[in-house]
Amino acid sequence: MKTILVVDDSRSLRQMVAFCLTSAGYQVSEAADGVEALEITQGQQFDLILTDQNMPRMDGLAFIESLRTQTAYQKIPILMLTTESSDEMKAKGRAAKATGWLVKPFDPEKLIAVVKKVIS
């Protein structure tokens, strides 16, 4: 079973993403910010990371940049799921080596389709 780490400071959002992905057959772990996510990724390998941008302690871009320095996570797909929709922020995401950018609110069907596409 493919494993996905969902990183978001909103508990309700994490729960909804986890619900959709679990229903689609994925195993989901959760983290509330970049710092917690980095701690989790130290001890576990995931097949995909789905992260928010604006979070306390460490935001999504800083988290991706840090994660990409780890050999185990250089090729793992990382999707941003955020309220941020500006071209400037998307460019920063691309520079940080994110795989894609999804703007909230997310549509469960589209989310699952994108996850399927990048995880394969």
């Binding site: 998307k90 795989t99 596409k117």
Partner: peptide, 16 residues
């Protein structure tokens, strides 16, 4: 301002 959503329609998806 980072949150510009004015409706609850689903947002864009872009793969790099």
């Amino acid at each position: 301002k980072s949150l510009r959503q004015e409706h609850m329609g689903s947002g864009d998806v872009e793969l790099f």
